[in-house]
Design a protein around this nucleic acid. Structure first.
Lengths: 345, 345
DNA sequence: GTGCCGAAAGAAAACCTATTCCGAATGTTC
DNA sequence: GAACATTCGGAATAGGTTTTCTTTCGGCAC
């Protein structure tokens, strides 16, 4: 038995035809007698022939590969994103290289070089924070789509989440639930994401003629502990608070814990809304957490779809495409729905 | 300006040499004058030449690509694993294809076919549970390493976590902390992982002549809610329990919540040990959770290293390689260490 | 100075695998 | 028997690497 992988030549020999004919037979091209075609197909099957994609790519100039470069250390935010990317790419039999830069520009550069040499059809660059970054150092002509972190080159295309809209959703939902004294606890002020979420909430409050409970946004770290401490601070500053919008589900967990320690009922006394819809965190909370889902899977799907467009030659103009968030309703805001709600924007 | 990617031919023309000479110059092979070599290198740089990996692979038979097939829907367990895989692969400039089967055998089969055609050098198949699965349907000759879920073919190689050892670590640690009435709350009995963890604990108890608090292992779902309910049950059955070993950090979170509701101090009254060392869960807990780290990153590293061995032609005999777990000490067991401890087995 | 040997340098060609284009051989039709 | 269609072989091609072969030159003996 031969350990060598069979090639068209082997198939040709077995079927008693030339290599060109094998190719035509297997790809349904050219003019061939049915009998010949069948003989070739049979020979290929018998040998277990699988065409070498490398050779095909060399010929066609397309590799049917796409790379996802992430700075996220394979963090949790990348998971739903990848799911969306595969949703869009899977249908096209496009394989995906996953590269993690670990936030190191050198590693990113090397990955970019390697991908260049591999002649990937396109690249998705995913940052985990909304910021502006330098364009990827890759050969001109290779389509690149940026996700969440946008490129400093305005002609590049970027897909991102709608954090302002997420804040709006949370705010509107709390107003609709009859809350009027709404506080906000969130992550570091130096990041754009928490600032935007806060802006969304503020916008809703302004429209309703309300002001923020506690008189300020409680910016801090992305930790449960800050959630616990900030909740104490908020309740000290504004004991009559009846709702808290949290910039992440982790923060919300901490907030809920403080509320329970203080014998405050959720949502009875205070309604809580999280952000991320990070399933194990949000669903495991007691009570389960109503939370803004930034729709990362859809972000990934859109990014991959646009990338495929660009690869196909469709011109995609630069700029930012924002994917609407939606609200996952659970018990922490006291509203129960049976329909899975899709947020409008 | 030419949009076409430069080839060796372009470089050769610019340097005034033949294509063969270009190859030799850029790869430091053959006999060339220093002056010639320098001229070629300069020409390549000026043109921004990047060798086409596809052509190189076609020639050499090696693609320097490896695939990771996961059934995990890009779940959290895959993240540390991927990190370990990249640790080992990155040094070799090996790129990794990430394929998610979403637990669908058809998708797995298609991925396997595609990878075959792409002539990947090797494949890592990662399941998320300890079970036996059918070998991957891939061309013979392609090295495959199984992770956690092992292949039914005993000649295949598998790397997995040490769940029994993890249970032993947790048990010994609790004994060392002076606890003697230790309960165990964990996931579904039908899975091997929780059974093994329980067996590890039982082994330690047997050695010490102790028995399980509550008289049984509390098997249930992998949810915080089960942790809360099971803790109630355990405390009802054995009110003098002074330690609880949990089969996951999520369960531990639920357990700790119940304990706090009952005004029991952790670790004062009851020490708690988790499993997974899932950072956001374990560190966010109040108090932070001592937990068994199954060392998934190391599992990934070992799997990739062995795969590279197999690719290099080193014979790797079939069987299971078990990676020791270690204990992450935090406050929920009352012991504080400054050194990051590595678990021995 | 001439002739010979061998080493050095680089050109030329073969090769890796599959696709595609061109043309040759065969068969069909009027 | 000429025009045309059908069927398939052969060669060129993609972009590199590697092997083979040729040219050139230095060194040395006579």
């Amino acid at each position: 038995m031969s350990q060598r992988v069979p090639t068209v030549r082997d198939v040709a020999a077995r079927a008693g035809v030339s290599v060109g004919t094998v190719s035509k037979a297997l790809n349904n091209r050219g003019q061939l007698r049915d009998e010949t075609r069948a003989r070739v197909v049979a020979a290929a099957r018998e040998l277990g022939f699988r065409p070498n994609t490398l050779a095909q790519s060399l010929q066609s100039g397309r590799t049917y590969t796409v790379a996802v470069i992430t700075t996220d250390r394979f963090g949790r935010f990348g998971n739903p994103l990848m799911l969306g990317v595969e949703d869009a790419l899977g249908a096209d039999r496009v394989s995906v290289f996953l590269c993690d830069t670990r936030d190191d520009p050198i590693r990113e550069y090397h990955h970019a070089q390697t991908l260049d040499e591999r002649r990937v059809d396109g690249i998705i660059v995913a940052g985990r924070r909304k910021q502006t970054r330098a364009p990827l150092a890759v050969a001109s002509g290779v389509p690149v789509v940026y996700v969440i972190a946008r490129s400093s080159d305005p002609s590049d295309f970027c897909v991102t989440t709608d954090d302002v809209g997420g804040g709006v959703l949370a705010g509107r939902h709390l107003l609709a639930a009859g809350r009027t004294r709404i506080g906000h606890i969130t992550g570091p002020e130096r990041f754009a994401d928490p600032r935007e979420r806060a802006a969304g909430l503020q916008q809703v409050l302004d429209e309703a003629g309300l002001s923020l409970a506690g008189g300020q946004v409680f910016y801090g770290e992305w930790s449960e502990d800050w959630g616990r401490r900030a909740a104490e601070m908020l309740l000290h500053a504004a004991p009559d608070t009846d709702a808290i919008f949290c910039g992440s589900d982790q923060l919300a967990r901490g907030v809920v814990e403080t509320l329970r320690d203080r014998r405050l009922r959720v949502p009875g006394d205070i309604a809580v809304v999280g952000f991320d819809n990070w399933e194990p965190m949000a669903a495991g909370c007691r009570p389960p957490l109503t939370t803004v889902d930034p729709n990362l899977r859809e972000v990934g799907r859109v990014a991959a779809t646009r990338l495929l467009d660009m690869i196909a030659g469709t011109p995609v103009e630069g700029g930012v495409e924002t994917v609407p968030a939606w609200l996952m309703l659970r018990e922490s805001t006291g509203v129960r729905l049976t329909e899975p709600p899709l947020g409008s924007n």
